[in-house]
Every structure is written in structure tokens, then in C-alpha cells.
Write a protein that binds this DNA or RNA. Structure first.
Lengths: 138, 138
DNA sequence: GCTTGCCTTAGAGCTGCTATCAAATAGTAA
DNA sequence: TTACTATTTGATAGCAGCTCTAAGGCAAGC
């Protein structure tokens, strides 16, 4: 059994965030001990994990709550849960694509500056240097 | 030359966001026409692009402003700009890693539900089904 | 000259934390 | 026993980054 602090460390989240999530109804089964302290079971950690996963790909808290509630209802909601996961995955894939694009741009700029420094050149595009791979626009 | 609306469409950003960014000092060279309307040049679009890139990888607006200001100062700031881009790229790579992990989890859950549906099975883990690849905990 | 449409600014509202606070409890040390 | 420290609690305030609304300006078309 884990306290909030333990979970925070284990899952690399802040205690604040965990309390906020708990208040948002994301951990419906976390029990309290005799002193009203939340005690997370191993199973509760799995809830934390899935919530963290959904948040990490930008799922709104309202939608996370919806998913949790569907889990609680039981087997009749499996189809909806499946489609939620599918949509979430699709969004995550888009994010990955987007991130790859931005990384290409950052790499381009990194090389641009590296070259300026290495050859002791001026930034002839000052105040804005050429920032994209393809554009040659003024 | 482009109005806010044109830029919003072209860059897939909201007009609100562009005005907010403009107010934050991210587009210092955007000129107004006789009717006080912002007119973005091709060069201004490049600024929008780099700001969008930095935001997309989670750079704080304060830090973006800093970068813009460095660009304006000129060649003496190339070294600092270079290291900003390097750090940004490092963060983006971490995000990419994280995203890949979360995608693995989502794929696992997708298959889990798919299997339940295909074989008309019960979710024996209800209310929380087995969510991770490696954990066999309780 | 009236409507439509796009622009403007100011400012309120929203989401998702993040930080601060006081109070309760438990453990340790003198 | 008392004091001090550490941890947890809930309530609440504050913050970043949008997002939306309201009120008004200007230009073109009918």
C-alpha cells in the first residue's frame, strides 16, 4: 500500500496533481486508513497509470472521468471504451507525426546556428533567419 | 500579405491564439495597414512558424519571447539562440520517447478490448482491466 | 444608407494544474 | 510530558495559455 507521496515518486507525478485527480474522481477505489490517509493498492496504481497515459496524450479530464465511469459500469460499456481507446490512439499518432515535423525544424535550425558559429558568419537573415527546410520566400 | 484570418487558416491556428501571441510580443515586425489591420508578410509567416514550433514542443511563452528578443538583438546572441534550440530539441526528443511509451500502452488496451469483443468475453478485471504490458500485480 | 463581414481591443471565463495555508495525526527526542 | 518534525488532509488562491464574448470601426455591395 502506498501513500500519495509514494505514488507521486513511483509515477513521477506531483502530490498536488494526484490529489487534484483524486478529487476529479479518477481513483474511485482508493481506500482511506483509520487516519483518513489515502492508501493506494497495486491495483490503484494501474488506475494512476492509465490516467497518466490518457493525460499524456492530451485527453481532457472530463473525458478521462467518462472513461473511468464506463469502467465502473462494467461489461456493457466495453464497446464504448474500445472506441475511446481507438480515438485516443489516433490522436497520439497525429501528435507523434507533428512532433517529428517540429523536430525536423529544430534540427534544421540547430545546424543553421552551428554553421554560423563554426564559420564565424553573420546571421544574414537577422532579425529572423531562414527557419524552414523548404521555404525560400523573402 | 495576409490578414489574421489568412494566417490562422494557413498555419492551422485560431485567430484568438494569433492575437494572443501578437500581444505577447511574438511578432514584432507585423505592420498595420491604414485601417489598423495587421498585415503579415511572408517573412512574418516564418516567425509564426517558429513560434508554433516552439509552442508545439511545450516551450513556455516567456521563453519564446526571450528567443524572439534575442533574434532582434542580432548576431551577438547567436550562441544563446543555438543553445536554446539545442535544449528545445532535447525536450522534444524526450516527448517523442514518452509518446511512444504511451502509444504502446494504448495499443495494448486496444488489443485487449478487441479481443474481449471478438470472443464475446467478460472483462474479468472489471472495474479495471489489466492495463500494462509487464505488470502482473494483484 | 443599410446590411454583411471581417477587423479591432478589452476583458471575462475556462482548464488543468500549482502553490499556500491551517489543522490533524504520528513519530522521535529530551 | 512536552516539544519538534514530518506528512497528510481539504479549502482556497493563483497562474499559464488560451478561448470566448462584447462592443465598436471600417469597407464593399445592394
Amino acid at each position: 500500500m502506498y501513500t500519495i507521496k509514494d505514488v507521486a515518486e513511483k509515477m513521477e507525478l506531483s502530490e498536488h496533481t494526484l490529489r487534484f485527480w483524486a478529487k476529479s474522481g479518477f481513483f474511485p477505489f482508493v481506500k482511506r486508513n483509520a487516519n483518513n490517509i489515502r492508501m493506494f493498492s497495486e491495483n490503484d496504481l494501474e488506475w494512476v497509470k492509465i490516467v497518466k497515459c490518457l493525460r499524456a496524450v492530451g485527453t481532457e479530464n472530463k473525458a478521462i472521468k467518462r472513461y473511468i465511469d464506463l469502467c465502473i459500469v462494467g461489461d456493457s460499456t466495453i464497446a464504448e471504451r474500445y472506441s475511446i481507446i481507438q480515438e485516443t490512439k489516433a490522436r497520439a499518432l497525429k501528435q507523434q507525426e507533428e512532433l517529428t515535423k517540429q523536430l525536423a525544424m529544430l534540427e534544421y535550425k540547430e545546424n543553421f546556428y552551428k554553421n554560423l558559429i563554426k564559420n564565424n558568419l553573420k546571421d544574414t537573415w537577422n532579425p529572423m533567419n531562414k527557419p524552414t527546410l523548404e521555404d525560400e520566400a523573402v
